[in-house]
Design a protein around this nucleic acid. Structure first.
Lengths: 215, 215
DNA sequence: TCTTGTGAACAAATTCACAGCG
DNA sequence: CGCTGTGAATTTGTTCACAAGA
């Protein structure tokens, strides 16, 4: 548990999601190479990743879907409800709220923040929107552990700092800037413009350049 | 040009963006360690990355902002207008259109597609929305080279395939599934639920686990 | 004295390849 | 057999550390 790589965690989450779908379809067993092709990786990669989780159990014709899923579930401790706050209730922020609402739970947006007084009170999706100044107390009171930043680039750093100060240790940043926060705060970057530019770049320079593995 | 890593391209794009901001502010020169701290990397990393671009020019107190910017601009051939199509005009799709509209050009969304007839014709932002069946001809006619997938997971694979068949070589996929396409089609994945889960995971397992470098 | 470019060392991630088990 | 788990090899990515330029 000490050193598990970022990449591996990402894939474990994907395996977990796939297993969920398989279970739904009544599949009871799955081989490493099947999982591999579903996520676009190699069988060895899958097996290596799974070494990280408890379930070393390996019957003989693959992995037991429900068992492995349970192990992953435990490992990723999805039990602990992920309580998120979203800062920046603009177009993007609202779309994300809507997008996440349609998903299988595990993560709930407990509060939203903005600086525009017009947005305060019952806003998007009946969720209350607080003034940014209330961030620290609300975060603490609602035991929020994940922050989502959807403010303009210029405001992102200070929002990130505020979240970190309020005790949030995991942040997903949609603003196109790097965040400067304490090293124990984990930041995931989602930068659409960069993804778009990368796609465009490799589109033209397609020397049979393999696409990036899922992420 | 032959083998430039995905990671490096991502950072080059970031440097380019930063230089743009610096130029705006009238800064004329910048050192590797400055760029480094701005993107959250090391100075050596920056220098290594820049080896990929033409501009080996290195006066003596850093890089000339405009010169380096020009080189990056050329390297990333931002000249060739990036013409994108967005498939799936739902909440997320619309938000992305709005988000990108507010950005410095270089990429324009030339067409949108959906299967819902109610959306056809002048839709989001005065852009025309075509029926999905028209994808191939419209993509070719408008010389679109980047596809953005914002359809539900179940439809993503077939849309990706359709885009690839129509000649699109760069895709940004927001649907939470891996795309199975020819190896010369580059796919960038943006999966919010995974980013959120990762953030949550590392938030609790914060063994001073360093955050992922920007991406 | 700074700061770059880069060979060489290092670290991380992935794949190979094979022993072991049912 | 076909499958997993895993040491060892390999490949990929990052950092070190230093020669050279101004």
């Amino acid at each position: 548990m000490a050193g598990i790589s970022d990449r591996t965690v990402g894939r474990l989450i994907r395996y977990h999601r796939l297993l969920d779908a398989l279970a739904e379809r009544g599949v009871s067993t799955v081989r490493s190479h099947e999982l591999a092709q579903m996520v676009g990786a190699t069988a060895a990669q899958v097996r290596r990743d799974l070494m990280a989780v408890e379930y070393s159990g390996r019957p003989m014709r693959g992995y037991g879907v429900t068992e492995l899923m349970a192990s992953l579930h435990g490992f990723l401790d999805e039990e602990a409800g992920k309580r998120a706050a979203l800062v920046g209730v603009g177009n993007l922020g609202r779309a994300i709220i809507a997008y996440l609402s349609g998903r299988r739970p595990g993560l709930s947006i407990e509060a939203t923040f903005d600086t525009d007084p017009a947005k305060f009170g019952a806003s998007s999706d009946e969720r209350v929107c607080f003034p940014l100044s209330q961030l620290a107390p609300v975060v603490r009171e609602r035991r929020i552990n994940v922050g989502i930043i959807t403010v303009p680039a210029a405001a992102a750093q200070s929002v990130g700092q505020a979240l970190a100060d309020a005790g949030v240790r995991g942040i997903v940043n949609f603003a196109p800037v790097s965040l400067h926060v304490a090293p124990d705060v984990h930041v995931e970057y989602i930068d659409m413009t960069i993804s778009l530019e990368k796609a465009a770049f490799f589109a033209s320079h397609a020397h049979t350049q393999h696409g990036t593995g899922p992420h």
